[in-house]
Amino acid sequence: MAILVTGGLGYIGSHTVVELLNNGFEVVIVDDLSHSEKFILKNIEEITGKKPVFYPFDLKRKELLTQVFDAHPIDGCINFAAYKAVGESQERPVDYYENNLFSLINILQEFKTRNISNFIFSSSCTVYGQADKMPIDEDTPLKMPESVYGKTKQMGEEILKDFAKAHKRKISLLRYFNPIGAHPSAKIGELPIGVPNNLVPYVMQTAAGVREKLNIWGNDYDTEDGTPIRDYIYVVDVAKAHVAALQKLMNDPSEEGVIDIYNLGTGKGSSVLEVVKAFEAANNVEIPYQICNRREGDITIAYANVDKAQKELNWKSETSLEESLRTVWEWQKYLNSRNF
């Protein structure tokens, strides 16, 4: 079975490609390399012993996407093709709406034309906004996200719900909390281009001396230590959830539209300062940091209720925060060895 993985050389995409290949799927990657690097393709092959098909182009170019579907018998798609930086999305809203939504619509046009089902959408806990209670389950009312990035994810979900209903397709919406870490081989991991927008890669680069100090965006939040709380989940655990969700869709006998929605997290929140201390303890390094003003679009607290994914996908997070952060440092050492 051939699975199209868009953004498949990116952070979560590359780890999911590894898990798909290890589970016997054929993989076709489309990635424009705007937030990834070509060497990741070679490293995926080294990890799995299998080479996925790769197309280096922009999904907004519909005529090129059509060529991929003409060339391969696609049985499903996992869509990671999106810009994802909260802060950047506030500065470049039109770019985010164009990239994150037009690419999705182009894929769905091919699915409609060719009568393909089994679509997994890389969504985000940002669709909940600042939830009124914790933990957040899948029935938590959605609020208008504070960031443009979050809005594109919420809009993407609505597009897919309408598509599933109108065309009787099977779709899974996976709402990630905060994926972190790197593959145990240290050959793939998060590779921020330019200044990192997410906490853990910034911590990693600060530990490596690439950045002078870690900027902590606010210490006046209503939390125990004043810094925001998130649910940090190991990226390989997230990747495995995609395979489980795909297998569930493919085995679903329903001929009606199916929308599965799952939170992917650990069920536990950690503050920014707790993550910094855990990284220091896991890797025996010191992280210099400074407190800055709050960043627009950030919320105070978010962590998941993951009971539904455990029950319906037989999946759960298995990796501790400390172990996840240890793999981050091994990945940074690998990048150092490449002079990257």
Rank of each mutant, 00 (worst) to 15 (best):
A82I: 04
V236F: 00
K42F: 04
T152S: 13
K165C: 10
I136E: 10
E146Y: 14
L108R: 13
I216K: 08
E224P: 05
N198W: 12
D260P: 01
E296D: 05
P141E: 15
L33G: 13
F119G: 00
V236Q: 11
Q332W: 05
L33F: 11
D307C: 03
L20N: 01
L101W: 12
D70R: 04
Y202K: 07
V30H: 04
L335I: 09
M144E: 15
A2S: 14
L335H: 07
L173I: 15
S324L: 03
Y221I: 05
E46F: 02
D32C: 02
V195G: 00
A245S: 11
S172T: 13
E158Q: 10
G87A: 12
S36H: 14
R211E: 14
F54K: 06
E46Y: 04
V195I: 10
G87D: 14
A302K: 00
T227V: 13
E296L: 12
M204T: 05
A166H: 13
V328I: 13
L264P: 04
L4Y: 02
V272F: 05
Q290W: 00
E37C: 07
Y128I: 01
G218R: 06
D237E: 02
G189F: 12
V86L: 15
T126Q: 07
V53L: 15
S117V: 03
S147I: 15
G24Y: 06
T16S: 15
N99T: 15
N115C: 03
I105L: 15
D31K: 03
V27I: 08
V272C: 08
L321R: 10
D139L: 13
T126D: 09
D222E: 12
K62S: 12
N283V: 05
E256P: 01
M134Y: 02
L21P: 05
P253K: 05
E63K: 13
V258A: 02
G76L: 08
E110P: 07
P179C: 13
A304E: 09
I291F: 03
P201W: 12
Y128M: 09
P184N: 12
A82Q: 11
K311R: 15
V68L: 07
L108G: 07
G76H: 10
I216Q: 00
K240C: 00
F163L: 04
L4M: 10
L199V: 11
L321K: 02
Y262C: 10
I120E: 00
P93I: 08
K62R: 14
S337I: 13
I233F: 06
E91V: 03
V235F: 03
I78N: 01
G7I: 08
L214R: 06
P73H: 03
L64K: 14
W217M: 07
Y221M: 14
F69P: 10
I44F: 12
K60P: 01
I116Y: 05
E91H: 06
E255S: 02
K62L: 13
Y303L: 02
E224D: 15
N219E: 14
K38R: 14
Q90H: 09
N115Q: 09
N118P: 06
V200H: 08
T113E: 10
P73M: 08
R294G: 02
Y128A: 13
I3N: 06
I259Q: 06
S317Y: 03
S14R: 12
I299V: 14
